[in-house]
């Protein structure tokens, strides 16, 4: 299995997809594929953010104790 994409790469890819959608006028199938891909990337980013968020909370909690 390929290594999980980093947040930064995912973000760059999202930006690229957005750019592609805005400028390249993809047809509907292409658009669907791009949106599907983007949604996956967003899910990944959200997951990472959520994980990071709880990590920060844990760390803060530890500091407070």
């Amino acid at each position: 299995m390929a290594k999980e994409l980093s947040y930064k790469d995912a973000l760059e890819e999202l930006e690229a997809i957005a750019h592609q959608i805005e400028n390249d006028e993809p047809d509907i199938d292409e658009l669907s594929a791009l949106v599907k891909k983007a949604k996956e990337l967003i899910q990944l980013c959200k997951k990472k953010l959520k994980k990071t968020g709880s990590e920060i909370d844990d760390a803060m909690k530890e500091l407070e104790d």
């Binding site: 509907i28 658009l31 669907s32 949106v35 983007a38 967003i42």
Partner: peptide, 11 residues
């Protein structure tokens, strides 16, 4: 992005 792609979705 989510909004953007939500609105971009043909569906």
């Amino acid at each position: 992005y989510e909004q953007f792609f939500h609105f971009s979705d043909p569906e």
